[in-house]
Nucleic acid binder design. Structure first.
Lengths: 338, 338
DNA sequence: TTGTAGGCGTTATCAG
DNA sequence: CTGATAACGCCTACAA
C-alpha cells in the first residue's frame, strides 16, 4: 500500500496526501481530516526508504562504541538512545573493539549508511598519534561528529566531556590532605581521558609540594583479578603506599580484593577511590568511594548540542561538565592519618 | 555522485555498474575491473536509500530491549550486534521500559522503519495476560520475531531460551542436598523467565519431599538496598532460613549485605546462590556462586536461527540451551549442613 | 556480455 | 488550497 492508494480512496492527489503527512499548512481542515481518516482506515505508513531517497536522510544517528557490554559505555549508549529518540532519531549501534582498522571500517560503514551524524562513545577513539585521527577529521567534512569524553579540535567535531582532570586532581588532593603520604595511581588505559586523569593525579601531587614517584603509577588491565595480581606483585616487591586512586571502579574493586588478600584494613591502612560510580561501587565491601561522572548529563548535553548543530546554530566545540565525589566506606575523610 | 557518474566515467551502462556492485557473474572480468577502478577512484558508495526502495530492505534488524543499561541486557545486545554484523546486518536499538504502551509503540516504530526482523531481548516482553501479547503476534505476520529468554508459540516467532527452570531446580536441589532445610527464594519479576525460575524452585522443594512454604517466597525490587531492607524486615519478623536462591545477582548481593548487617556467616549460616554470573558476582565478598546462563551462546543461537529463517529454512519455534552453576564463596558443597 | 527502460514511493516545484 | 509531474538513485526484466 502506498500514497497512491490513500490519495485515490480519499479522492485527492498524492501531493495533498504528502502535505498532510508532513504537516504542511496549505491544506484545508476538511481535506486534512478526510485524508487522515483514510490513512487510519488503511493503516498506512509512509515508506521510509522512498522518503529517505527524496530527503537524503532517514533521521538516524550512528553510535560508535568500543564495547557496549562495558557497564559505563552501556549506560552512555542507553542515555543517548533515550534522548535521541525524543527528537525522532533512531540509532544504529556499532561496536568496534580496540583495533584502529575496525574503527575506521565501521565509521566508513556508518557513513555509507547515510547516517545524519556519528557519536563516538568514549575517548578510546582518539589515538595518541595525531595522524591516526585523520579518519575522524575526514568524516567531519560530511557530517557532524560528536565525541563523548574525548576532545579533538576540528570544525564540525563537537566534544562533550566531564572534567576528568579536575576530578582526579580533587580526589587525590583530598587523600593527601587527609594525611596520606603515598598515593598509588592505578590505571589501565592511555586514552585521551586516561591521560587527563593521570595528569590530574600528577598535578595534585605536585601542587601538594611532593614529587611524583613514577613507581606509584601502576598500569593494570581492565580486569579485577589481574589488577589484584599486579598490586600483590608490586606490594611483595616492597612498594609502599597508603592510598589508591583508581581510574575505574573495576580496578578499585581489584584493589579492595588485594587489600583483603594482604590483610590490609580499609580505610585505616589503605584508602581507595574509584571512578564512574558504577553498580560495582556498592556491590563490594566496604563500599567504594567513587567519582560520579554524570554520564546521563553528559549524554543529554551531547544530544542537545547535536540538535543545535542540525538547526544551524553555532555550537561550541567543547562542553565540559564537572563531577562529584561520592563518599563511601573505602575512605574516611573525617579522620586525619599521619 | 551516483551510479550514472560511474557508468559514464567507465564508459558502460548503469546496468553493468549495478551488476558489478552486486557481484553478478554476467560481467566480463575486464569490464568489471574497469568499473571497480572507477568506483574506487571516485570513492563511490551506492545510495542505501535508493537500494532500500528497490529491494524493500536495508538489512537492518530492530532490537527491542527494556533497558540496555542493565548489565545482563547490555551483554545480550552486545553479542547480538556482533553476530548480526557478521551477516551484514545493522541493528537499530530501541529501549522501551516496562510500560506495555511503549513496547507496542516502539515495536510499531520499528515496523514502520521496515526492519527485516525484530529481536526482543528479555522475557519482560511477554505479558501475563495473553491478549496483551497480541501486538507481537500481529507483528509476526509481517516479519520474523525473535525472543531471547521468552517463549510464545506462534508462526514466525522464534524463541531462544536458556533453561531457567532446570537451572533453578538443580541449584535449589544442591542446596537441599547439602543439608539446607529452609531455602528462601528471592525474586523481583513475574515475567516469563521469572515464572520459570520460580517453578524450578517450587518443584525442587517438592521433589525433595518437602512442601513449599509460601512465606519463603520473597518478592523484592531489582535494587540492592531495597533487597537488603526487605530481607531484614522478614528476618526481624522471625522468618527462618538457612539459604537463599536468588533470581538475579543483584538480589543475591543485596542478600550478602543483609547477612553482613545481621552478622550471619556466609556460607556456614547462610548459603547464597545468584543468577546470571555477572560482574557483580566477583565484585562482592564473599564472591557469589551464580548460574551462568550463557548469554553469548544464546545470542549466537538466536542470530543463526534468524539467518536460517531468512534463507527460507524450517526453523524450530523454540531452542533451549542449558546452564552451569559457577561455584564461589557463598556456598560450600563440600560440607554437609545439618 | 551489455544496454534500455520501467518501477520502487516519496517530496517538491510549479502551475492553476 | 490543490494537482500534475519531475526528480531522488538503484535494480532488473527484457531486448539486443
Amino acid at each position: 500500500m502506498n500514497i497512491y492508494d490513500v490519495s485515490q480512496k480519499a479522492g485527492v492527489s498524492i501531493a495533498t496526501v504528502s502535505r498532510v503527512i508532513n504537516g504542511n499548512q496549505n491544506v484545508s481542515e476538511k481535506t486534512k481530516q478526510k485524508v487522515l481518516n483514510v490513512m487510519q482506515e488503511l493503516g498506512y505508513t509512509p515508506n521510509v526508504f522512498a522518503r529517505g531517497l527524496g530527503l537524503n536522510t532517514m533521521k538516524t544517528i550512528g553510535i560508535l562504541c568500543l564495547d557496549s557490554s562495558d557497564p559505563f559505555l552501556a549506560n552512555a549508549v542507553f542515555y543517548l538512545e533515550q534522548n535521541l529518540r525524543k527528537y525522532g532519531y533512531d540509532i544504529i549501534l556499532c561496536c568496534t573493539g580496540y583495533d584502529l582498522v575496525n574503527k575506521q571500517k565501521y565509521l566508513q560503514l556508518l557513513l555509507s549508511k547515510r547516517v545524519d551524524a556519528v557519536i563516538l562513545v568514549g575517548s578510546y577513539f582518539l589515538e595518541t598519534v595525531r595522524k591516526d585521527n585523520a579518519y575522524l577529521l575526514e568524516a567531519a567534512n560530511n557530517i557532524p561528529i560528536i565525541i563523548l569524553n574525548g576532545y579533538l579540535s576540528h570544525p564540525n567535531i563537537y566534544c562533550s566531556l566531564c572534567d576528568d582532570y579536575q576530578s582526579v586532581f580533587d580526589a587525590t588532593t583530598r587523600l593527601l590532605e587527609s594525611g596520606r603520604k603515598r598515593v598509588l595511581y592505578l590505571y589501565h588505559t592511555k586514552s585521551y581521558s586516561g591521560m587527563q586523569k593521570l595528569n590530574g593525579y600528577k598535578d595534585a601531587v605536585a601542587a601538594f609540594g611532593m614529587s611524583v614517584d613514577e613507581s606509584l603509577l601502576v598500569l593494570a588491565k581492565n580486569n579485577m583479578q589481574q589488577t589484584q595480581d599486579i598490586l600483590s606483585k608490586v606490594y611483595d616487591e616492597g612498594l609502599q603506599f597508603d592510598a589508591i586512586m583508581a581510574a575505574e571502579d573495576l580496578l578499585a574493586v581489584g584493589a579492595i580484593k588485594f587489600a583483603r588478600e594482604k590483610g590490609l584494613r580499609i580505610p585505616e591502612e589503605l584508602s581507595i577511590i574509584g571512578y564512574n560510580n558504577s553498580l560495582l561501587s556498592t556491590a563490594c565491601e566496604p563500599e567504594l568511594t567513587s567519582v560520579d561522572n554524570h554520564i546521563e548529563t553528559l549524554s543529554i548535553t551531547a544530544v542537545s548540542s547535536l540538535m543545535r548543530v542540525f538547526e544551524g546554530h553555532d555550537v561550541p566545540n567543547k562542553t565540559t561538565i564537572s563531577n562529584d565525589l561520592i563518599l563511601r566506606g573505602t575512605t574516611d575523610f573525617t579522620k586525619q592519618y599521619y
